[in-house]
């Protein structure tokens, strides 16, 4: 009987212990996979906001075209300004109409002269945004400045928090899985103590004795990882319509299959190693 078959037999002979080991590994991996997608998602949202026009200045309604061009020209001369886009009242109306094309009443009420022209300014670095904001606020033709730095700061904090909470949770659950697999396999090793002694007397190498327990841990890791990923994927599919609505114009769904492939490969590899290590740790303690 090869070690892999022996491992499968060991699993079959103690189904409840084996299911416990697989379940805790699956929970750990479900949380790990979910957090990794959340971290990726929040990072994408952060990138989205960082690549948008970061400071928007709204002109007075009576600002002339010459004044608007003057402001644009002044801002363009700043070394820290990356890009400038002018939105005229007509363009603002076109955008408004596009966004509200399903509501004729709103379209009838609004004309170009009640929508302000605006200037959207991007900076080379986020740190320059405050300066851009101050520049625009100091200009007479500009009535209001919308500055997204606070949103970005808030998102950055959020992403960092999600990352730390995720890492802490996954590490805790990973450690718990490792200890549970080690404890369960230790029980089986204790049960087979005499058989191990006999094999040792018959000249079995250390690997011959350890291999079935190593593979048992590997199987727990593998099945736990695949189950955890499967549940996470099903949950994502279920939540996709809600998430799309929630995220609006931020387009991060559907997630490319390459991301899933990388996620599943890394997760499975780690849990296989974790399970295998737990199995050999358990038997090593007994062989001492």
């Amino acid at each position: 009987m090869n070690p892999f078959t022996t491992a499968l037999t060991n699993i079959r002979r103690s189904p409840f212990q084996s299911i416990t080991a697989m379940a805790i590994t699956a929970v750990t991996l479900f949380v790990a996979y979910s957090f990794s997608l959340m971290i990726l998602g929040t990072q994408q949202i952060l990138n989205y906001f960082e690549t948008r026009p970061q400071v928007i200045g709204f002109f007075e309604l009576d600002a002339s075209v010459a004044e608007i061009n003057q402001v644009s020209e002044k801002m363009r001369q700043k070394t820290y300004v990356k890009d400038i886009q002018l939105i005229t009242q007509e363009e603002a109306l076109a955008t408004y109409r596009d966004e509200n094309r399903d509501d004729p009443l709103l379209l009838e009420l609004v004309t170009a002269d009640i929508l302000p022209a605006s200037i959207e300014v991007s900076a080379d670095e986020i740190s320059a945004l405050v300066q851009v904001k101050n520049d625009l606020t100091g200009l007479d033709a500009v009535e209001e400045v919308v500055f997204q730095q606070d949103i970005i700061d808030s998102l950055t904090n959020w992403t960092t928090s999600v990352r730390y909470i995720g890492i802490a949770t996954v590490v805790t659950l990973g450690l718990t899985s490792f200890l549970i697999i080690t404890a369960l396999i230790s029980m089986k090793v204790t049960h087979r103590k005499k058989a191990i002694q006999v094999m040792s007397f018959l000249g079995a190498s250390s690997w011959f004795i350890k291999a079935p327990f190593f593979f048992e841990g590997v199987i727990y890791g593998l099945i736990g990882s695949l189950t955890g990923w499967g549940v996470m994927f099903a949950a994502l599919l279920y939540l996709t319509p809600w998430l799309k609505e929630f995220l609006g114009t931020i387009s991060i769904l559907p997630i490319p299959w390459e991301v899933f492939a990388i996620q599943l490969s890394i997760g499975t590899l780690i849990t296989i190693l974790l399970g295998g290590f737990a199995g050999t740790t358990a038997v090593k303690r007994m062989m001492k």
Binding site: A195, V198, G203, A204, S205
Partner: peptide, 19 residues
């Protein structure tokens, strides 16, 4: 292990693997 393969051991309690 190689040394032990050169000695066959028979025990009073047989020590056969029950499974």
């Amino acid at each position: 292990p190689l040394h032990r393969r050169r000695i066959g051991v028979v025990f009073q309690d047989y020590r056969l693997l029950p499974e």
